[in-house]
Structure formats: structure tokens, C-alpha cells
Nucleic acid binder design. Sequence first.
DNA 1: GTCTATACACCGATAGAC
DNA 2: GTCTATCGGTGTATAGAC
Lengths: 212, 212
Amino acid sequence: MARLSSADRRAVLVRAALRVIDRDGVYRATTRAIVAEAEMSLASFHYVFRSRDEMLGELFAFVVRREEEATLAALSSSVSIRQAVRSGLQAYFDLLAAHPEREQALQELIQYALRTPELAALPGAQYRRYVHSAQTMLEHGAELTGVRWAIPIEQLSGVLVAFTDGLTMSWLANRDDSAAAALMEFAADAIAAQSVPARSIPASDPPREQPQ
Amino acid sequence: MARLSSADRRAVLVRAALRVIDRDGVYRATTRAIVAEAEMSLASFHYVFRSRDEMLGELFAFVVRREEEATLAALSSSVSIRQAVRSGLQAYFDLLAAHPEREQALQELIQYALRTPELAALPGAQYRRYVHSAQTMLEHGAELTGVRWAIPIEQLSGVLVAFTDGLTMSWLANRDDSAAAALMEFAADAIAAQSVPARSIPASDPPREQPQ
DNA sequence: GTCTATACACCGATAGAC
DNA sequence: GTCTATCGGTGTATAGAC
């Protein structure tokens, strides 16, 4: 194998490991399988990574970053906030349907990290980043469509993330596209119901639920 | 070890395996660790189970059954349907908070089963059972509080399961009780909003959400 | 820096004594 | 029916030649 800088070799190995994990699962992504995928020797792995777990930590960060970028890019122009939320969910679902192995791999990585003391803090951090992304989308969507949120935005972001988690779990389990669509319709309705026109005086009959 | 019937020995091993999985994860629940936990010899394991995967299949069925019974038992008497849904969610959450290892173990088992051809059908079946449980609860709750559902019950059951999945994922990641409570409030509102009084004439302003 | 060869632990599963 | 002993294989990680 050609001479590579340490950073380059780490990146090559992380990408190779990701292909193995997508294909065969975290459990089978052994150091041997990874270096075979990357077409390099086993010793080269341990020349740039102290351990397999160290590599998995770097891989986890890479995956979270990639996922974040993909979903944030999906903010389309919409006339209503309901439509904006709905199409944001659709963009996520399209990603899920196009690469189910990736989402499954991410779930496995979360479980693995939770069981590994050295990596146990990563899932919490990843989750906070997702909530933050959701918050950005909700704020931006509200601004674009001229509404504001009637309940605290942090709370609503958590709800949106929970919806996408639930969507992911159920679709991975049954691959039922129409059930997924129904769930997204429901979620878009329920979230949009928490919006009020941006310039209106706060209603005396306060927020909670029901039409917009 | 005393002589046991095959069925008894299988049950003993399944329960021991469950303790190991709760404590150390599916990945570390090796045949050796399991028989050590059960205080029997390795050969006894293979006397009653053809393979480790065969045992895990039996264990998976056991866990799904246990989970189902626990949630179905939680249907309390409530005056409003919102309150009924809310307390149903609370009952599930109490279970989750009391035994987080169990839910984490279940997630791992699902991932493992999806990667194992012999067990790949189990998660789908488990998911259908959950949706069915949710449907039973929603039907029963509606009956008790004198309402009916404005959208198809299968659809609403899927939503409820998605909420519990999202609740599970987020709480396992951040252990934030108040965020979990906020999510449950939101879910109870959103689901109860799909109910109408049982004896009323269907509203002319029809029940949000598309028919399927 | 990169390789081959190997150490050493542990895996699932089985043979064969009792 | 239950055990000890062991097989063949694979895991992570490292030693040492080049």
C-alpha cells in the first residue's frame, strides 16, 4: 500500500469500516474485515489507531456529521408551516428509504457506544445535536411562512426528533411506506397545530392543540 | 446440576441469558457467559439448544410477551380520553425508567435479529404485536370514556407506537425526565385531538387528516 | 511506514467418559 | 443427562523483518 499520512489512512479506514458496517453490521466489522475492505494490512490499522474502539469513536462522529448535513440541506420553500414540516419529514424519509442500512448501522452504533465506557458519552451528544438541528429547522420554517411557535421551541424540537425516531424504528421493522406516510401526515398536523400567526396577539384562549 | 426436563432447562438458560444481556449486552452474552450465570456446564447448553441463535429466538419471544403483558395491564380508569392516553404513556414510561437495561436489551435484540437470517422475521412480528396492543388500548380507552376515533384506528395505533419508540430512544440517550414528560403531554394532546364524542353526528367540518 | 508472522484470549460446538 | 476436555476457528493486538 502506498504511503499515506496518518490522517489520510485514518480516513480511508473509517470509510472502509462504514462500508463493512452498512453491509454486515457493527458486530461483524472486525479489524480483519475492515483492513480487507480497505486492502491494507492488519498492522497498518494499529499503526494509526490505538484500538478498534478508538476508530469507532471517530467513525461515529463522522456519521453524525454526515446525517446532520443531509437533513439540514432539506429546507425547501413552502407556503404553509404544515407543508414545510411535512416536506422536511419527507426529505428525512427519502434519506431513510434510500439508505436503510445507514440508519440501521447508526442504531447499532448507538447501542454499541452505550455499552462501551470509552464511547458512552457519544449518543447523548449526538442526540443533542439532532434536537438542535430540529430547532434550527423549526425556527427557519416559522420565519419563512410567517408564523411563530406557541409552545417552547426546545420542547417542539424534541417532539420532532421523537417523531423521526419513531418513523425510523417502525419503517425499519415493517417497511410499510403507506404507514410511514400516514405517520408523517399526523406529525405535520400535530406540529403545525402549535403555530400561530407571527403578528397576532397571543390568543386569550391559549395555544395547545387544534387547528391553526 | 440436578436433572431437569428439557423445557425447564431451556427456561433456566433463557432467564440466565436475559440477566447477562441486561447487564453486559447481547454482544457479550456468549454461551460461556450464559452457562456460568446459570451455573451449569457448557455441554448442557447444547444438549437442549442446537445453537446460540436458537436460544436467542426463544428469548426474543419471551421478552416480547413479557413487554406486552406489562403494558396491557396498565389500562387505568380515566374520565377523559386524553387522561387515559396520558396515563397509558406514563405506565410505559415508568416501566422504561425502572428497567432501562431491558429496553436497551430489546433494541439490541432487534438489531441482532435483523442481521441474523434465521431470526430476521422476528422484529416485524414483534412490531405488529405492539401495534395490535396499542389498538386494543385505544379501543378500550375510547369505550371507557365515551368517545370514538375520527381517523382509522390502525393508523392511530401506529402513531402511538411511534411515540413510545421516540420516547424510548430519546430518554435512553439523555435520561431527561422532564423532556420525556413534555413529549408525553404532547402525544396525549395530539392523539386525544383525534377523538370525537361517541354519539355525535360526524362533524361537517371533517376530522383533519386524509382518509386512507 | 509497511509488511508477514504470530501471540494469546475467547468463541461456538462436539466427543466421549461417567 | 451431565460432565470435562478439546477441536477448529476467529478476535484484537503486537513483534520484528524489511
